[in-house]
Amino acid sequence: MPQFLEHSMTSWRGQQVEHKQSIVDQFDPRARVLATVIFALTVVFSKTLWLPFLGLLMAFAFALSASLNFRRTLRRMIAMDMFIVVMVLMLPFTMSGDALFHVFGFAASKQGFIHAIGIALKANAVVLTLLSLVGTLEASTLGHTLARLKVPEKLVHLLLFTVRYLDVISREYKRMRKAMKARAFVPKNNLHTWRSFGYLVGMLLVRSLERSERIFDAMKCRGYCGKLYLFDTMQWQQRDTILLLSMASFAVFAIASGAYVA
């Protein structure tokens, strides 16, 4: 398996175990989520090239101050860039405009080239900021943050339950894969493999449905009546206001400098 897809085989542990404490963790989770949203809106809708470039520089600064694991982050960025690389390479040739250079007789247009660079800059800036400011939260903290930001309760509860059982199911999955391996199962290009994976998913679903029934009974025993009480110690401080204000002024600056006029 290629290295850049490696995360697909690692178990789900949130970021708790691996993320080192950094300056970013001193900010309130709400401020980090809001700042990321403002940043992404500002960058994504811009019509110029310099603003996404500035955004990418800011994203690098966020990544540095979050002291992200360099190799893991790089791998994820490359994995994301794999999605766009084909499209970005095709754009100069499919967009009409002034010819910049020729490859095998196909003209690469200047407009297409600029557009392609814009997409690459925006995509990388947003993902890097997301990984730095939001990805460094614990997944359950993200749920609590969304609840504090008035996201509907049911959605937050669903997120918290999903996150809570990701690790459990992941371990169940690994156990079953190990059992298959012990019976000499090796994934290949054949019907047997695909059928076995289908049965694996089916069995995983049966077991988790039954587990959820047991959990629900246990929760009812403890007086669950459809509401989770969220306890957290989030405290809004002056530096959170400053972070948000600076992000807002970035947005205002972008609007004022005409970055949204095509």
Binding site: W12, F161, T162, V163, R164, I169, Y173, F197, L204, S212
Partner: peptide, 24 residues
């Protein structure tokens, strides 16, 4: 329904894990 959240959360966690399975 609120009391179906454990079940649906569990199933969506399962689908999340299933979507990480790589098939040759």
């Amino acid at each position: 329904d609120l009391d179906r959240i454990p079940q649906i959360g569990m199933l969506s966690a399962t689908f999340f894990i299933a979507s990480l399975i790589h098939v040759p």
